[in-house]
Lab assay of single mutants.
Amino acid sequence: MTYRVRIENADGEVVTIEISADELREKGLTLEELLPPNARIVEVEEVEP
């Protein structure tokens, strides 16, 4: 499974990243732990691999 994640950074700019569930598991991280300081998740969407 892959996630498309929209993130708002500290400057108010919204960027989109895609990350797979396998990648998260391998790194032992959650989506929140990948965020840079002062950023927030705006939207998470599951996409087909």
Rank of each mutant, 00 (worst) to 15 (best):
S20K: 09
T30I: 05
V14N: 05
N9S: 10
G12S: 03
K27D: 02
V14C: 07
M1D: 02
T2K: 14
I17H: 02
G12T: 01
S20F: 06
S20R: 10
D11N: 12
I7T: 03
I41F: 05
L29I: 12
E18G: 02
A39Q: 04
E26L: 14
L35A: 04
E8I: 15
R4S: 02
E43L: 14
E48M: 15
V44I: 14
A21N: 05
I7K: 00
T16G: 02
L34H: 04
D11F: 11
G28V: 03
E18D: 08
E33R: 05
R25W: 09
P37K: 09
L24Q: 01
S20V: 04
I17P: 00
V15K: 07
E18W: 15
S20P: 07
A39N: 05
T16V: 14
I41M: 04
D11H: 10
E23D: 09
E26S: 13
L31Q: 00
E32Q: 12
T30Q: 06
I41L: 07
P49T: 13
L34W: 15
I17W: 14
V5D: 00
V42R: 03
A39K: 03
R4F: 10
V47D: 03
D11T: 09
R40E: 03
R6H: 12
I19D: 00
A21F: 10
N38Q: 06
S20H: 08
P49D: 12
E13D: 09
R6Y: 10
V42S: 02
E8Q: 13
A39W: 15
R4Q: 03
V42M: 10
L31A: 01
N9R: 14
R6M: 10
E32H: 09
D11K: 10
M1V: 12
L35W: 03
E18M: 14
G12R: 03
V14S: 07
I19H: 01
T30E: 05
D22F: 13
Y3H: 02
V14L: 13
T2G: 07
N38S: 06
E45W: 14
N38H: 10
E45N: 08
L24C: 04
E43F: 15
N9K: 15
E13M: 12
K27Y: 08
D22M: 13
E43V: 07
E48Y: 15
V14I: 14
P36T: 04
T16R: 03
T30G: 04
I19K: 00
L35M: 07
D11M: 11
R6F: 11
D11S: 10
D11A: 10
E46A: 11
I17S: 01
